[in-house]
């Protein structure tokens, strides 16, 4: 059983988002980078499946050298080896091309990703990779169990769940509660230092989009407080001022 997990290197969920250079660059000042929260769920489930089936688990990121601490963290959580495809991830299609190219050579049985990145929120890379590899894609997956060559999954739909069966290999975009996030322990952190982290060069593939500039939303006005003993006033404001009731 060979499992590939693709992870993003994204600003911590509490980061203040700002831009520099006349709104053309993301401002990394004071920003902590983490494994994307959805990717973290995918990784956690992959560690469990690897332990269960006794296979191997590779993590991959398409990014520049700055993402290596994030890959090391994934090794500390339990991945066996890490791959960094050396390129600036400027567009979903470009990233998907790199992943598909790497995965073709690796012959993976299962490719797990997050349901979406928390920076560009595309929710697309898993579907693109699956189409390129001619595999089924399923997202957002909240439960994944293996029975031999068949996987049993639950996919979240509006207002509930859909249960599916699919044969390996396939690509899944994961979300909670597929597994609990794993926090690296001391042994994991120590062993991560000696696990392989290989850098491979990007295959040149064109991107289909190019981001030109950024903008912040306008600041929110002050809250209007209503006395707790006068809830009728709130109803009146919602009805006549906001016109939402």
């Amino acid at each position: 059983m060979k499992i590939l997990v693709c992870i993003t290197h994204v600003p911590d969920t509490t980061s203040k988002i700002q831009f520099t250079d006349n709104n053309t660059q993301f401002d990394k000042t004071g920003v902590q980078f983490i494994i994307g929260p959805y990717d973290d769920y995918a990784l956690a489930r992959a560690v469990e499946l690897r332990d269960q089936t006794g296979g191997s688990l590779t993590v991959l990121n398409v990014g520049e050298a700055e993402t290596e601490p994030t890959l090391r963290k994934a090794l500390a959580i339990g991945a066996d080896e890490a791959i960094r495809v050396n390129a600036f991830p400027s567009d979903s299609l470009f990233v998907a091309n790199q992943i598909a190219h790497y995965a073709t050579e690796g012959g993976y049985d299962l490719i797990l990703m997050g349901r979406e990145s928390i920076d560009f929120n595309g929710g697309m890379v898993h579907g693109m990779v699956a189409e390129m590899l001619g595999m089924p894609s399923i997202s957002p997956v909240m439960k994944l169990d293996l029975e031999g060559e068949t996987a049993k999954l639950a996919r979240e739909i509006e207002g509930g769940k859909e249960y599916l069966e699919v044969n390996l290999p396939f690509v899944a975009g994961c979300q909670e509660p597929i597994a609990e996030w794993k926090i690296p322990n001391m042994r994991g952190i120590m062993s991560a230092r000696t696990k392989p982290l290989n850098v491979v060069e990007a295959v040149s593939e064109d991107a289909a989009t190019k981001t030109i500039s950024y903008e912040l939303p306008p600041a929110k006005g002050a809250v209007k407080l209503i006395d707790k003993d006068n809830v009728e006033e709130l109803v009146q404001l919602l009805q006549n001022e906001a016109k939402v009731l």
């Binding site: 979903s92 299609l93 349901r115 979406e116 560009f120 929120n121 595309g122 929710g123 697309m124 890379v125 898993h126 579907g127 693109m128 699956a130 189409e131 390129m132 894609s137 399923i138 997202s139 957002p140 979240e156 739909i157 975009g173 289909a208 989009t209």
Partner: peptide, 20 residues
């Protein structure tokens, strides 16, 4: 979630650039 998944595969089939 369904739209994302379908559109992603279509970017390859239609050789289309996608913005979400």
């Amino acid at each position: 979630s369904l739209g994302d998944a379908v559109a992603a595969r279509l970017t390859i089939k239609l050789k289309a650039g996608l913005v979400s």
